[in-house]
Design a binder for these strands. Structure first.
Lengths: 346, 346
DNA sequence: TTGAAAGCGCTAACAG
DNA sequence: CTGTTAGCGCTTTCAA
């Protein structure tokens, strides 16, 4: 509760000197500095960051706008792992994190700019917002530095970090194709996600490259939900029993698809190969274990924070970062049973 | 960026009046209030909470001190789910959350009190700290209101929220006993966790009640880690092949124990019944699925926030909350093969 | 019903 | 090297 004023009094100097001494300015006598430091310690002084921020117009605080801070997120842990990454990086660089929840009604009343301006955050990281979220428009127009997770928008004040979704999806589908599959379905997320568009592109590109015709009716949306994917997978597999492999835009949906397939009497991977995307925890615990595309969620968070802080501290350079993916082969994918194997579709 | 000063100028009143008008005080003419509100909207005014907090000595901010914000937490999601609960409750009540990570070195230099006083949080919720953490001592001595998760300490300024661990553990062991098991091992967490002590008590109480002698050598510590539990379980089962059931103080450790058992050629649940604690996501996805004690982590978080905010707003009452647990029966526990079943130990 | 003035704790010119 | 002064944006006595 001691203030620099108290210290000044006790040390017999002015507040200015105290401020300068404590902030490591060079233009202060070492003797007085020591004296002041001693008094500060004695009085258990700690600076009031509110006051400092008020005058400095910098809070050393990063706002975190997460729209998916829900208990269901527990299944894929996306939010949490990204948060860990952000937290670690911010911690290293001396920034604190303030959480803006967009769940609560209270805060939904407020605009993005209000949220940020009131708390005077230096910058913001946004995660889990959809492309049609009203906040997104505000972000782009606002000049508060911000980094978007998984939304490729770049400008002077906004950057982004994402995984190479297209490449990842392509790897997954390539893998299925290599295993001999040619009737490959896809369970995608939803229209309001950039990653869905990109993963679809990857799927199409892989087919294209293997000279397999793209069939629109082979692709359904599962909204990134296990339950919805289960429903959609069942429909898809019923309508197109010739499908021997499915690529799912998330592991959670892959789990749903496997459930559906099993209920329909299809064995995995013998009758149906299933590949996912994300490499979540459950992917290695499910049975069969899930072949999937790994993306490093922690690193997404970490890089986001790096990018933002670089922007805040005026470092030059591009404001984007695209991370690599890798294929994790497990039990859920298998060579297509080769009753009549041919390299070309008939 | 507009301030009340700007509004005052535009509206032709004093800053005092603006302040009072915007804050809903009654002693201001409705006409002028409307005028002021209009101007405020026009100028896109949003209050500077730093300035307000500085004079009001309230920040409407809760500090979150989590020592387990690590990627490994992904497996049990404890941290994340508690966070969700806190976040939701805080959001509802108009508080923002600020994350103090104790991972970073930077912040480990600072004492608990410094952390809180600098950022001027109104109160703190602490999670995941061990009983020998130096912060804990500070917390108790400090008079900043705070709520502890899973550490039963209560005073004027500190409260806690926890699960009824003893009762939960007893339920689990009771269940094993009902299934006919009498040689029941336990894989506990570690000495620096209150929950471990309590779960051990529950284990002992259940045995006691069933007139089974407590054997110290049947209990080992797995540090709440899957890998360590695996090691310890193997040792335990080797040393005491007569054991037919194991109660683990966490699901993660139960998974480790199952791994060890399987590697030793024991089938689960036929040769060995395993029960866990927590009811994490993986418990229902592992094979066999895991019998466990469910605790509601989201609610722990939510109640923590309620408790803290009540304290902050001066509500009277006890500062603790102990949540119920429930038994979730799944595949990993089974009747003991009754070669020579008897109700009493010989 | 309104305004002038003081002050929260800090930093930053500007003199000396 | 040190102190004086002003001011960040807000709330709050106290008078008018």
């Amino acid at each position: 509760m001691a203030t620099i004023k108290d210290i000044a009094k006790h040390a017999g100097v002015s507040v200015t000197t105290v401020s300068r001494a404590l902030n490591g300015y060079s233009d202060v006598n070492e003797k007085t500095r020591e004296k002041i430091k001693a008094v500060a310690r004695e009085l258990q002084y700690s600076p009031n960051l509110l006051a400092r921020s008020l005058v400095m117009k910098k809070t050393k605080t990063i706002g975190l706008l997460v729209s998916g801070m829900r208990i269901e997120g527990s299944k894929d842990n996306f939010t949490y792992e990204v948060l860990c990454g952000i937290n670690d990086c911010a911690g290293e660089k001396g920034y604190d994190l303030i959480l803006f929840s967009t769940n609560s009604e209270q805060q939904q009343q407020k605009t993005y700019n209000q949220l940020c301006q009131e708390r005077k955050v230096d910058g913001v990281i946004l995660q889990g917002i959809k492309t049609d979220d009203p906040y997104l428009k505000e972000v782009v127009e606002s000049d508060i530095p911000c980094v978007l997770v998984d939304i490729p928008i770049e400008s002077d004040s906004v950057g982004y970090v994402t995984t190479n979704n297209k490449q990842g999806a392509k790897m997954a589908v390539d893998h299925l194709i290599e295993l001999g599959h040619r009737q490959i379905g896809m369970i995608n997320g939803h229209e309001q996600a950039f990653v869905s568009k990109q993963r679809l592109q990857g799927y199409q590109e892989a087919l294209d490259q293997a000279k397999i015709d793209y069939q629109e009716q082979y692709v359904v949306n599962g909204s990134f939900l296990e339950s919805e994917a289960e429903v959609q997978a069942e429909k898809l597999l019923h309508a197109h029993p010739e499908i021997t492999a499915v690529f799912c835009a998330s592991d959670l949906m892959a789990l749903g698809a496997m459930k559906a397939a099993r209920r329909m009497g299809k064995r995995i991977p013998d009758d149906l190969s299933v590949a996912g995307f994300d490499n979540i925890m459950l992917a290695s615990y499910s049975s069969p274990t899930l072949t999937t595309i790994a993306q490093d969620r922690y690193q997404i968070g970490f890089e986001s924070a790096i990018l933002l802080i670089d922007m805040l501290e005026g470092k030059e350079g591009t404001h984007k970062k695209v991370l690599k993916t890798s294929l994790v082969k497990r039990e859920s994918t298998k060579l297509k049973p080769t009753r009549s194997f041919s390299t070309k579709t008939t």
